[in-house]
Simulated scan of single mutants.
Amino acid sequence: MALGRKTGGREKGTPNHSTAEIRSLATVHAAEAIERLADLMRNAENETTRLAAIRELLDRGYGRPALHADIKSHVDTPPRDYREMTDEELEAIIYEARAEREHERANASGKAWRSDH
């Protein structure tokens, strides 16, 4: 990017011709594909195949179900007030946070993280 502006590629709002072409070709076969899924749902000998066809039909007709995570945590002790911590405890927290951030950056850039940082 130059001066905070996008300098290459398509302009915003310009359709991707390859994607549009593939979508157009797929649309031609959509009705036949749905008919085949319905046939598999009703007549497949394998229960796994029938269930997969049912899932595909429902996903296309109603959308995929939302994913929900029920996360529960049990903490034996409440978090301590930072004003009650020693300088050494606070420095350890800062050091650990910096190491985690460095690790995340290294993973994001594809580099191996070294523990000697």
Rank of each mutant, 00 (worst) to 15 (best):
E21K: 04
I22F: 09
R23Y: 03
S24K: 06
S24L: 06
L25A: 11
L25H: 07
A26C: 09
A26Y: 08
A26S: 13
T27R: 11
T27S: 11
T27G: 03
T27N: 09
H29T: 06
H29D: 05
A30I: 07
A30H: 07
E32G: 03
E32P: 00
A33S: 05
E35T: 06
R36A: 15
A38W: 02
L40T: 01
N43E: 09
N43G: 04
N43C: 08
N43I: 02
A44D: 07
A44E: 07
A44N: 04
E45H: 09
N46L: 07
N46G: 01
N46H: 03
T49G: 02
T49H: 05
L51P: 00
L51T: 03
L51E: 12
A52M: 07
A52D: 07
A53L: 02
I54M: 09
I54T: 03
R55I: 00
R55M: 04
R55T: 07
E56I: 00
L57W: 00
L58N: 12
D59Q: 00
R60Q: 01
Y62L: 06
A66T: 08
L67F: 13
H68P: 01
A69L: 15
D70G: 03
D70P: 00
D70Q: 08
I71W: 05
K72N: 08
H74M: 10
H74D: 12
T77W: 07
P78W: 03
P79G: 01
P79W: 00
D81L: 02
D81Q: 01
Y82Q: 03
R83M: 12
R83D: 13
R83L: 14
E84W: 10
E84Y: 06
M85T: 05
M85I: 05
M85V: 04
M85G: 04
T86Q: 12
T86L: 13
E88F: 11
E88L: 14
E91R: 14
E91P: 11
I94N: 08
Y95A: 12
Y95S: 11
E96G: 01
A97W: 10
A99H: 11
E100N: 11
R101Y: 11
H103F: 15
H103Q: 12
H103K: 15
H103N: 11
E104D: 13
E104Y: 06
R105S: 03
R105L: 13
R105Y: 04
N107T: 10
N107R: 15
S109I: 13
S109T: 14
K111H: 08
A112S: 15
A112V: 14
W113H: 14
W113V: 04
